[in-house]
Amino acid sequence: MLNVNNLTCGYANKPVLTNINFKLDRGDFVGVIGPNGSGKTTLLRAMTKIIKPYSGTVSFNGKLISRMNFREAARNIAVVCQEVNPYFDISVEEFVGLGRIPHQEKFAFIETKEDERIIRQAMEMAGIVKFRKRSLKNLSGGERQMVVIAKALAQQPKLLLLDEPTVYLDISHQVYILDLIRRLNKEQKVSVLIVLHELNLASEYCQRLILLDNGSVEKIGTPQEVLAYEIIERVYKTTVVVRENPISHKPYVFIVPEEEKKNISKA
């Protein structure tokens, strides 16, 4: 589905990512992790034509993203950013309705019955029907993020790109949002490429992880393969202890504060 081949890209004349290679198949749930400044967000931006590759290619279903027009790209790929602040006051329903723009004709001013059905379905799936008439400005951070995901769903994408969608959220909202994304992934077969800072969330939810370091891929593999303590310590330059989550049996990364390091051998 998504094929990234020898991708090198960045801003102005400064490369941020060099020689990135990976594939994503239909129904995959892949996480992108890495320290600050490692190029995670830049990678997502290269998937959506916002930045052009210096070299290498990004193709979707066999077609180069650079050859797609923005509308075609938006019909296939939806993006959920960390935060969306609409400038003008807008209701939840209106906001979700914006997701239909790539599918609408230029002069189709009113949503069709089909549009309305899809918008309703997206809101139901995200669990936001009850506050569809409320202004987006009056929602909490967690509720707002659910609305943003519903807008992405209304786009009916085949690939969902998410840039730290759980940042600033408490753990209950983090779990709610990621459960929702997993449900979409399983029920609708939407492929997911998600940037996450929180390693344990990435471990719990992603089938595979791409670990970036300094603009290059350090490791690609299952959470067990990537979240090995020696790899994490090397890339993040911090001491960690990795154990297995007794419930999910996924790796769980514990941080070790400076004054506790002397107790590592006991652990």
């Binding site: 034509k49 923005f70 939806a78 602040n85």
Partner: peptide, 25 residues
């Protein structure tokens, strides 16, 4: 202007978001 009314709606979210909605900003 009416040919761009939906583009303007998308612009309310910011230029990058408008691009994600398929607008050739």
């Amino acid at each position: 202007a009416y040919a761009f009314c939906k583009d303007l709606n998308a612009f309310a979210l910011g230029e990058e978001e408008a691009l994600h909605l398929g607008i050739a900003t």
